[in-house]
Write a protein that binds this DNA or RNA. Sequence first.
DNA 1: TAGATGCGTTACGAGTCTTAACGAACACGA
DNA 2: TCGTGTTCGTTAAGACTCGTAACGCATCTA
Lengths: 240, 240
Amino acid sequence: MTPTGTAVPRRERARAATIEEIKSIALDLIREQGTTDVKFADIARAMEMTPPALYRYFADRDELFTALITDAYDDLGRVVGHAREAVADTDFAGRWVAVASAYREWARREPQQFSLIFGAPVPGYAAPDEGPTTEAARRAMSQLSELFVAAAVRGKLRKPLIRDVDPSLLACADDKHGELNGVLAPESFQAMLGAWSSLHGFTCLEAYGHLDWMGADARDALFASQVRLIAKTTGLPVPD
Amino acid sequence: MTPTGTAVPRRERARAATIEEIKSIALDLIREQGTTDVKFADIARAMEMTPPALYRYFADRDELFTALITDAYDDLGRVVGHAREAVADTDFAGRWVAVASAYREWARREPQQFSLIFGAPVPGYAAPDEGPTTEAARRAMSQLSELFVAAAVRGKLRKPLIRDVDPSLLACADDKHGELNGVLAPESFQAMLGAWSSLHGFTCLEAYGHLDWMGADARDALFASQVRLIAKTTGLPVPD
DNA sequence: TAGATGCGTTACGAGTCTTAACGAACACGA
DNA sequence: TCGTGTTCGTTAAGACTCGTAACGCATCTA
């Protein structure tokens, strides 16, 4: 069975597969033990290998972490993106709810991955500045801004409740003009950031168990009311 | 110099002082290295002791962590409380701004302590359920609820923007009736939780550097607008 | 003064990350 | 078909960690 159509050499494919297996097992272990510190020894044991073998694939434990973090960003962005596109592209409020819910549920489903990207730096791991992680962060965040841009383009974005924008924030919005297609008004830009931070706040609190004292139903209700409130205050067209 | 007025035996005082020194140095190290994992060896070295000596004061590394976490809660509660009381007790909006700003600034000043209490569980450390940490958490949170209760008592709390409350959240509010003096309307209770999560979201994002891409001025402006927005939507009496 | 208690030390076992040196499997050109 | 070189996984070893055990020394108490 000679590889005819395969552009990628057999060797490299095996290597890539091993790398994926390492990351996958690392994630499993992280999920199992509930913390983000993985031991090379444990990964190796689960793969029926010896610890030093892993150094053929990751120079450092930090390098493995960086890979896990960028993967987490990608996964979050992908999940949120799918959720967004599952709703009619004219139903902006519906898309906002979908995005917010996906964000929340991903964090609850994968609290460790969530804390990997949004939590405090992992012990002993200093994020490489301007590295691949910041790049991945932009991609994930863009899911939200695209939503607002789309609404603005179609003229469906009302003025947000808070309209006065500080000069410094205005300058900042100008910097981002390119990415935002130059169509998002500064006050809407400000409102969007506020929406993100509000959403993020609830998500953090819930993912780390700080809302466990209220029942699951109550949490759902609180989330729903928050999302609706944000839609209103940011100027997204709520059906209500 | 015989200890005349000292009720506490000299021995215990020395022990307490050592405990404080350990925690203090642990915090310094955490601040220096920017991560929450402290090594007993480093603490001991800084104290010019040998690592095993620390086990006379903390049975475990987890025990030290628990102490640090409760201290962090206390510190946050204390700082926020002071900020609240520094504003006239009739100026509810002012008090809200003070509380929110103190919360934010504490997190920015002590990101490690912040992540100690609000971040993902520390690697290898499983929080003792229903232990002293949850108790301390209540105390810190109460700074916010007292503010809302006070405003409600004086009839200065308007209806929040979102008024419909889900039954499950209503039941939850009833449970807390005692602590809330039975005077906070369910919709205000819901709004208060929303206020907290919004505040928390901005604080998290900023403390962990996810807003570094905008300038400090822009961050300040965004925070101010968020705080004002929350005051409006929760029904706090804004002077404007 | 005699004894008990508390504290800090050294010594040690188990475990971790990481590098270095070795052997075996594989791919490839002569 | 036969070398040759690259890649992979192994064992061995050094430096470091947490945590326990056993030993002195100081202090407090009876």
